[in-house]
Amino acid sequence: MTDWIARAREVAAQLAVDAVERDRANNTPYAEVQLLKDHGLVTLLGPAEHGGGGQTWETAYRVIREIAKADGSIGQLLGYHYLWAWAARLVGTDAQIAAVEELYTKNNFFFGGAVNPRDSDLKITQDGDELVYHGHKSFSTGSKVSDLTVLEGVLEGTDEHIFAIVPSKQPGIVFHDDWDNIGQRLTESGSVTISDVRVPWSDAAGYVDRKFQPLVYNTLNVPTIQLVFTNFYLGIAQGALESALAYTRERTRAWPYGGDDKASATEEWYVLEGYGDLQAKLWAAEALVDRAGAAISPLLHARREELTPEARGEVAVLIAAAKQRIVDTGLEIGTKIFELTGARASATKYGLDRFWRNLRTHSLHDPLPYKRREVGDYALNGRLPEPSWYT
């Protein structure tokens, strides 16, 4: 793991140089994704026999976090890529897993996904031995920087959801330049129109003879990506605190009207107290996030048939707890740092606002009170969350 974290930190150092300017410019991050590819981070989870890193999810989560410290958008892109690169393992057959992992690993391909469950599902029709996808999705993270896109839709006349992995660059997929939110600005999360995208029935993930083969393991998709969120939230919060500390060391002035005057802001009592409180809370959140990563990684890498509903539920509760803790802590850090750095730190050239904007934007993905309820129901009643699109 250590070597991969060091590699991620090298990439993060390059991203940090112009992170503020790139956030403001809001350009498609082709160069940033290429940087991830050039350093082998895109194929970190790929099989070693195909040139991949052969690493675990525990390592992948730590790498996401390191990238997000420098640039929350790129951390999100990488985290979503890891989830979608694992999609074949989550729902596919053994043959599909082998084919997809060889394809993306050998070619260093980057994944995007058009699978937002709050939208109307894409419609799927049959045409002989092919499935045909049609529709519109409001969000397609990774869109124009992706090589492969995960699609999900409902087969006409049924309630069957079918996932498929298709090339992103084709006439039937049109990505729209309409992502213009206050945070996570470089995630290419705009809408997409899908028209006559054809997939052989043999590529319908998890289907054998046109029948889906269910496993409890299929339901790990939500806890896995919820912990992706949690880790890039943690990275954003860590980046915010580190940036604020550096600013205070270099620029913040002591307050000369308090009756306990200090020569440097680094000796100012309220500054020390403020940073001490934030650092303690962040360390606590980090410990919980690491615990969640250590819990889910063995499940993701074990034989898929071995996963029980109880094991899945236990790790989902732990991830829900970690997510609520880092969202609360991260948002507090994103606001409080301005009280500790001083008025001049609010200048746009420093970009300290981007951390709060990034975390605030993505933490609205699904309502945090539902995560608190899941944990409370488990603590009080011993009930595990039922698998859904968001639990």
Rank of each mutant, 00 (worst) to 15 (best):
W4R: 07
A8P: 02
A8K: 03
A12N: 00
L15H: 06
V20Q: 04
D23Q: 03
P29R: 00
A31Y: 08
E32W: 06
Q34V: 10
Q34F: 10
L41D: 08
P47T: 09
G72A: 14
G72M: 03
G72I: 01
Q76I: 06
L77Q: 00
L77C: 05
L77H: 04
L78M: 02
A85W: 06
Q96M: 02
E102R: 14
T105Y: 07
N108L: 06
F110Y: 06
F111E: 00
G113N: 07
A114D: 07
P117V: 10
D119R: 07
S120R: 12
L122D: 01
L122E: 01
D129P: 09
D129W: 11
L131R: 02
H134K: 14
K137E: 09
S146L: 08
T149C: 13
T149G: 03
V150Q: 03
L155E: 06
G157T: 04
H161N: 13
V174M: 10
F175T: 13
H176C: 02
T187G: 01
S189Q: 12
D203W: 04
A204R: 01
A205T: 08
G206V: 02
Y207P: 03
D209E: 14
R210N: 14
Q213V: 09
L215D: 00
N218P: 03
V222W: 05
P223L: 00
L227R: 01
A240C: 07
L245V: 13
A246D: 15
R251A: 13
R251E: 13
A263V: 14
V271Y: 05
D277M: 12
L278Y: 02
Q279I: 15
K281Q: 14
A284L: 05
R291W: 11
R291T: 12
H301G: 11
R303V: 12
R303T: 09
V315K: 01
L318K: 11
I333L: 04
L340T: 08
G342V: 05
A347L: 13
G351V: 03
R360G: 09
D366W: 15
D366G: 11
R383G: 04
P387L: 05
S388E: 08
Y390K: 12
